[in-house]
Simulated scan of single mutants.
Amino acid sequence: MTISGRHTDILRRGHWIFDLDGTLTVAIHDFASIRAALGVPSGSDILEHLEALPLAQAELMRQKLVAIEEELAGRTEAAEGALGLVEKLHGRGARLGVLTRNTRDIALATLRRIGLEGYFSKRDVLGREEALAKPDPDGLYRLAREWGVVPNVMVMVGDYGFDLETGRAAGAATIHVDTSRTFRWPELTDIAVGSLAELALALPELPVTPCSPVRAR
C-alpha cells in the first residue's frame, strides 16, 4: 500500500475496533452451508432471517446457529499478522475492541484460541447480544461511549462490506483487509491491505507506552 498523509493520520489513531471472523482469524465460515443448515434462503442475511421467524422457531434456529459457530471457533486459526499487529497497537497504548455478529462468548473463546484474549477487555468485545448487528453502527457508538471518545477518532478494521458500512455510518475510519486483494468496496474504504501483517508494517513509529495485557473483566 502507498501511505498518504490521510493514511498516516488514520494509522496514528489510538482507538481500534476489529471484526473477528475473517479479519483476526482465517476465514473458514461457509455461509452458504450455514444458510442451508438453518433453512435460510440463499443470499439472505442469516440474523435478519432468524429475527423474523416465530419466537419458538427463531430460538431453536439460534441454538443451532450457536452450535455451528462453536464448532467453527474450535478449529479457527489466527490470521496472518494478527498477533503482531495487536501487540504493536497494544504497545502503543491503543484501546482495542472487537465488534462481531457472533456471540460474545464465542468471540472470547475464539480470541483465547488464537492467543489474543489478553489484549482485549471483555467489556470491549461486543457480540450480537450486546449491540445491534453490523452494519448498524450501534456497537461503535457503544464503544465510543465506553472509551469517552467520538467515533471519528476510531478505526474499524474488517474483511467484509458490513464492517466497512458500520465504520462509515459511525464516522470512523475504515480499513479493508482482503487476502484476495480484489477490494470490492472502495467507496467504503479508507485504507486497503492484503493482510494484517501488511497493516502492521505500515503503522508509523510512535513513542511506546508499555502496558500489561488486559485481563478479561
Rank of each mutant, 00 (worst) to 15 (best):
181 R>Q: 13
72 L>A: 13
90 H>E: 03
153 V>I: 14
156 M>S: 02
139 G>A: 15
185 W>Y: 15
140 L>A: 12
73 A>P: 00
77 E>G: 04
64 K>W: 01
87 E>R: 15
188 L>T: 01
106 I>V: 15
96 L>Q: 01
115 G>W: 05
127 G>Y: 12
128 R>N: 06
164 L>M: 09
98 V>R: 09
153 V>H: 10
145 R>S: 11
191 I>R: 03
175 I>P: 10
91 G>Y: 08
167 G>E: 03
63 Q>R: 14
113 R>I: 12
117 E>R: 12
74 G>T: 10
191 I>S: 03
162 F>H: 09
115 G>C: 13
187 E>C: 03
137 P>R: 12
138 D>L: 09
173 A>S: 15
102 N>S: 10
180 S>L: 14
176 H>I: 07
160 Y>M: 13
123 R>L: 11
136 D>S: 15
128 R>F: 06
117 E>G: 05
86 V>R: 12
159 D>W: 00
115 G>P: 11
69 E>I: 14
190 D>Y: 03
147 W>M: 11
66 V>F: 11
129 E>N: 10
90 H>F: 04
185 W>Q: 04
143 L>I: 13
162 F>T: 07
126 L>R: 01
85 L>A: 07
180 S>C: 02
85 L>G: 06
122 K>W: 04
176 H>E: 02
138 D>Q: 11
89 L>I: 02
128 R>M: 06
73 A>K: 09
172 A>N: 12
159 D>L: 01
140 L>Q: 07
70 E>K: 14
126 L>K: 08
100 T>D: 00
135 P>Q: 13
66 V>N: 10
150 V>L: 14
118 G>S: 08
153 V>E: 14
156 M>D: 05
124 D>V: 05
68 I>K: 11
165 E>R: 15
178 D>A: 07
132 L>M: 14
91 G>C: 00
162 F>V: 02
145 R>Y: 06
76 T>D: 03
100 T>P: 04
108 L>D: 05
118 G>C: 09
73 A>W: 09
170 A>S: 14
122 K>T: 05
60 L>H: 14
195 S>C: 03
122 K>Q: 11
63 Q>S: 13
107 A>H: 02
188 L>V: 06
161 G>T: 05
65 L>H: 09
86 V>E: 11
158 G>D: 04
187 E>H: 04
158 G>Y: 00
69 E>N: 10
137 P>E: 11
162 F>Q: 08
84 G>W: 03
121 S>N: 13
152 N>K: 11
60 L>Q: 15
194 G>L: 13
96 L>C: 07
108 L>G: 02
61 M>R: 15
63 Q>T: 10
129 E>Q: 15
92 R>W: 13
133 A>L: 10
143 L>K: 12
145 R>L: 12
181 R>D: 11
167 G>Q: 08
131 A>Q: 04
176 H>R: 11
109 A>I: 00
95 R>P: 04
88 K>Y: 10
78 A>T: 07
169 A>R: 15
184 R>W: 10
148 G>S: 07
150 V>Y: 08
87 E>M: 15
194 G>T: 08
171 G>L: 12
95 R>K: 12
128 R>V: 03
131 A>S: 11
173 A>K: 01
173 A>Q: 06
97 G>D: 01
66 V>M: 10
83 L>S: 14
190 D>S: 08
79 A>V: 05
92 R>L: 14
